[in-house]
């Protein structure tokens, strides 16, 4: 059974796509069959892995709007062995409107992802709390919330947690006792001392719900986007590559715990 994870934050520019691409690449390089579902009409996960919009015949737009359309029909190979992407184009924005008329509209994605032959499925969500995000929340078993060190990110996090609570139909106790979500601090800049102190203090109650790994601000991560490559292929020695490798280890730790699998050290050699 695939471990379905939504990478989600309704605030834009928090590092959702960068996290989806690099975590997905690291998982694939470590030998896990991985599918990235691009649910953002901007299609940055798709573009980020070197697939140009002109090369896409069918996308997540069809999966969300055409009844019984299968993910297998739209999924494309990427340049990384073992890593596939279900691409998105700008048409997905219109599709979101059409979805509102369908029955069980929140469960469309969950149905489409059922029975796929992947170890991991990562969903890159759009920066909104609309029907596409609700679909990914309904389909996933785990949520990664990339969060920038800013006041507005904290407010966004509060709204998001309330939404998770209502969509997943969880009580307060379940939400904090179960391993349902993890906050991922991104674009961390050590020089912003006062802001960092304030935000980290506010996030203190969520210490157990926050990844130990912090993604530091790193220019190589921006450049890798331009090069349309995962950071491990663009600059494997960069701090960004190291941070995402650590994140992958932590993520796998959670997955192993969930599935009662023995702990295993991360395989650094398998990432380029």
């Amino acid at each position: 059974m695939s471990f379905i994870t939504a990478v989600l934050n309704q605030k834009g520019g928090t590092g959702k796509t960068t996290t989806t691409v690099n975590l997905g690449a690291a998982l694939a390089y470590q030998g896990y069959r991985t599918l990235l579902v691009d649910l953002d009409p901007q299609g940055h996960t798709t573009i980020g892995l070197g697939i140009e919009p002109e090369a896409i015949r069918e996308s997540m737009c069809e999966v969300m709007t055409v009844p019984k359309k299968r993910i297998q029909d739209v999924a494309m190979d990427t340049y990384i062995p073992g890593l596939d992407v279900a691409p998105a184009t700008i048409h997905l924005a219109r599709a979101a409107e059409q979805v509102y008329t369908r029955v069980f509209r929140e469960a469309i994605l969950a149905q489409a992802l059922r029975g796929l032959d992947y170890d991991f499925i990562l969903i890159d969500c759009p920066p909104s709390l609309g029907v596409l995000t609700t679909n990914s929340l309904y389909a996933c078993g785990f949520i990664i919330i990339p969060c920038q060190i800013s006041r507005y990110s904290l407010d966004g996090l509060a709204d998001l947690l309330t939404t998770i609570d209502s969509v997943k139909n969880l009580g307060l106790e379940e939400l904090f006792q179960e391993n349902i979500f993890r906050i991922l601090l991104t674009m961390f800049d050590k020089r912003n001392r006062v802001t960092n102190e304030y935000i980290l203090e506010q996030l203190k109650p969520y210490q157990d719900k926050t990844f130990r790994t912090i993604i530091m601000k790193n220019e190589a991560l921006n450049q890798a986007q331009i090069a349309q490559k995962a950071i491990f292929d663009f600059d494997p020695r960069s701090s960004g590559a190291q941070d995402y490798l650590h994140l992958t280890s932590e993520f796998l730790e959670i997955w192993r715990k969930r599935n009662n699998l023995p702990a295993s050290p991360p395989s650094l050699q398998s990432c380029r």
Binding site: L154, D155, A158
Partner: peptide
């Protein structure tokens, strides 16, 4: 600057989940 931040609360701090987690900690 730091003094001006003191006492400024966020939506997150008022969330019941945050308060429950703080109590548990």
């Amino acid at each position: 600057k730091k003094k001006q931040l003191a006492g400024k609360s966020t939506k997150l701090a008022k969330l019941p989940l945050t308060q429950a987690l703080a109590r548990r900690a």
